[in-house]
């Protein structure tokens, strides 16, 4: 039986629109409770927080609740205070892959969700978010976004996130179903072409390009010139890359010119073919990547206005 903890006015000592909000105990440990309190105070004082000012200590390594595998659905229910790096290693210990290769970002997932839309698009099936009021918002549980506008994107995405991701269901794959193959294609152009071919086939768990190299995590029958086990990839192009992934820029998975451009600029291009998504990982903070958190229940207009302003900004009339 799931255990729940009830947050009431007396618990946090500040105003709440909701008389009571129930948070699953897996979410509501002391750090999160303290954050709820801080967020509510911030709202009362009308001083919105910058995400960069929030520090959340990850749960201890032996906390079994921080990564829970949902075998039936190919998902992992993870604590969003963990970095992708920590999540990836814990998954590996349990016999699963993330659909993204090492080095994984050392940024906490909750912050990455604000700056890396590719992560939201490709990896996160659903999220449990904490509004600035301290309310818990569960986005719909569906294999795709299904009904209506995507609330996960609306809540996480820039320019103004309205909630903090505290837990996420990530798409994962059993290690028995996939193996890694790395190929040096000799040029960025050839690697980009191969990237698009793998994406078109829509079979691989993930495909990544860096320089002239292409890595494909696919089922046992993926074509390969060079076969490298993921544990022995030190010294490869991947081993030399920095884990400083601060954000991402989404691209069309078949956009070869954009892939070539990114590869020539020394960037890492990632794709999740079975989700039809691709992105360029960024090692610097993009503009707006340290967003202002806005209040959901009383200042959603602020969020909506920011979204509307972004949608209506002057655009190239090239179409």
């Amino acid at each position: 039986m799931p255990v729940s903890k009830t947050i009431t006015k007396s618990t946090v000592g500040t105003v709440s629109k909701a008389a009571r909000t129930v948070i699953d105990v897996a979410v509501a440990d002391d750090a999160i409770m303290a954050l709820v309190e801080r967020l509510r105070l911030s709202r009362v004082r009308k001083s919105p927080l910058h995400a960069a000012s929030i520090v959340l200590t990850p749960p201890p390594a032996d906390d079994l609740r921080s990564v829970i595998i949902d075998v039936d659905n190919g998902l992992a229910d993870v604590d969003a205070r963990l970095s992708l790096h920590a999540i990836g290693y814990r998954l590996k210990q349990q016999g699963y892959w993330l659909p993204m290769l090492r080095p994984w970002s050392s940024m906490p997932l909750w912050r990455l969700a604000m700056t890396a839309p590719f992560v939201v698009d490709a990896l996160i099936q659903r999220g449990t978010l904490l509004s600035v009021d301290g309310d818990v918002i569960d986005t719909p549980r569906a294999p795709r976004h299904a009904a209506g506008p995507s609330l996960l994107h609306g809540l996480c995405a820039r320019p103004s996130p309205t909630a903090l991701l505290v837990r996420a269901h990530l798409r994962v794959v059993p290690r028995t179903h996939a193996r890694l193959v790395v190929t040096d294609w000799g040029s960025a152009n050839a690697a980009a072409r191969a990237f698009v071919t793998v994406t078109d086939a829509a079979r691989a768990v993930c495909v990544e390009a860096f320089g002239s190299n292409l890595a494909v995590l696919a089922d046992d029958h993926g074509a390969a010139d060079v076969d490298v086990d993921v544990d022995s990839d030190r010294g490869s192009a991947w081993g030399s890359m920095s884990a400083r992934v601060m954000g991402s820029r989404s691209i069309g998975p078949g956009d070869r010119p954009a892939i070539v451009k990114a590869l020539c600029a020394g960037q890492r291009v990632v794709g999740v073919p079975f989700m039809q998504r691709a992105g360029v990982l960024l090692s610097t903070t993009a503009s707006g990547a340290s967003p202002l958190l806005v209040d959901v229940s009383t200042a959603t207009t602020q969020a909506a206005s920011a979204i509307a302003a972004a949608l209506t900004r002057p655009q190239e009339r090239d179409q």
């Binding site: 839309p117 939201v120 698009d121 976004h145 009904a147 209506g148 506008p149 995507s150 996960l152 994107h153 609306g154 996480c156 995405a157 820039r158 320019p159 820029r249 989404s250 691209i251 069309g252 956009d255 954009a258 993009a286 503009s287 707006g288 979204i307 509307a308 972004a310 949608l311 209506t312 900004r313 655009q315 179409q319």
Partner: peptide, 30 residues
């Protein structure tokens, strides 16, 4: 691309960092 209820042209693209790529998925399904 679209026209909103104010009569304004709106636009969102997944590769547009300025608009916030997640906004495409706010218009899809609307």
């Amino acid at each position: 691309w679209g026209v909103d209820g104010r009569g304004e042209r709106i636009h969102a693209a997944v590769d547009d960092m300025a608009t916030g790529p997640g906004l495409v998925q706010m218009l899809v399904g609307s």
